[in-house]
Amino acid sequence: MKTEQKKKWIHQVLPLSCIAIVILLLPFGIQSNYIITVAVTCFLFSCFGVCWNMISGYGGQISWCHAVFVSIGAYTTILMNNLAGWSPFIAIPVSMILSFIISTVIGKISFRYRGPFFSITTIAFAEIVRVLLLNFRDFTGGSAGITRPYIGASFWNLMFENDTPFYYISFVLMVGVVYITYRFEKSKTGYYLKAIKGDEDAAISLGIDTSRIKLTAFQLSAVLTAVIGVFYGAFINYVQPNTICGMDFSVQIGSVVIVGGLGTVWGSMIGAFILIPLIELANILLGAQGGAQLLYGLALIFVVIAQPRGVIYLFSKENRDRIAQKLGKGAKKTSEKIREKGREDI
């Protein structure tokens, strides 16, 4: 037991705290606000990815309407600020309630059936919200979008002179949602959800209330996404239906998770820190609107075909074993020996 704890310390706690310290100190070494901005985007996309992963990764129910939940958070923040001068912190509970109601309606209806119904319903829903946002011009600014004007730095308004405070805020958010996912993964709902992904018919035949479990995961995912959306809105200070509420935004979130590793705690972060800088770079090099976006589509297709478990697979024990075996260091692991013994016995 003691060695196990020691092992855990060396393999998990130590490297993680090292990374955390480096991340916390980083802004002191970097003068460029641009790099900080990209880093904040990475953190926030990690958060979105982690939330999306709850329902789509663990549960295998691919959602294409997470952009709507982001929009709920962002629009609520900016509208409340512009119309009433209220703080984003008041927008948090409001957008949580809104996204809870919406996810409940969508989930209640579409989770009763299996297959692609959920994905199709989310696509349709996202499309409708986008069209509504575009057309209720008086309220949403239509396709021109709305901006939150700068009225001086204040934490209460989540408004700062540069992006460094956001760097820390989004880092804390990321740690928060990762912790929630971690707990979620180990909860009963988490186990049932994975079973549903494994084989939904079997899960039903064993008494698991599949529609309720999927609904719970979707609600949690939606509510958390909306909370992050509030911060995202305060960060970018500008919302426009086609960019923030289009299916493209949902696909970007999905791509981040899939590239990193679907259904894993760390995958979204790895994905975000690979894809977002890559796309920023492509933006600079290619300049065109389409060129950089093209990468998302390519990355998505490539990873699903080549290694559906994502980049995180490269770091997995399984892959290390495979490489070790290939290199001929083939000392068999105890677990494998037991496995073989099991076969002989039976």
């Binding site: 994975k194 079973a195 992904k197 494994g198 079997a202």
Partner: peptide, 8 residues
């Protein structure tokens, strides 16, 4: 046809 939760 047996139906294990193949991801576990």
């Amino acid at each position: 046809t047996p139906r294990p939760f193949g991801n576990m």
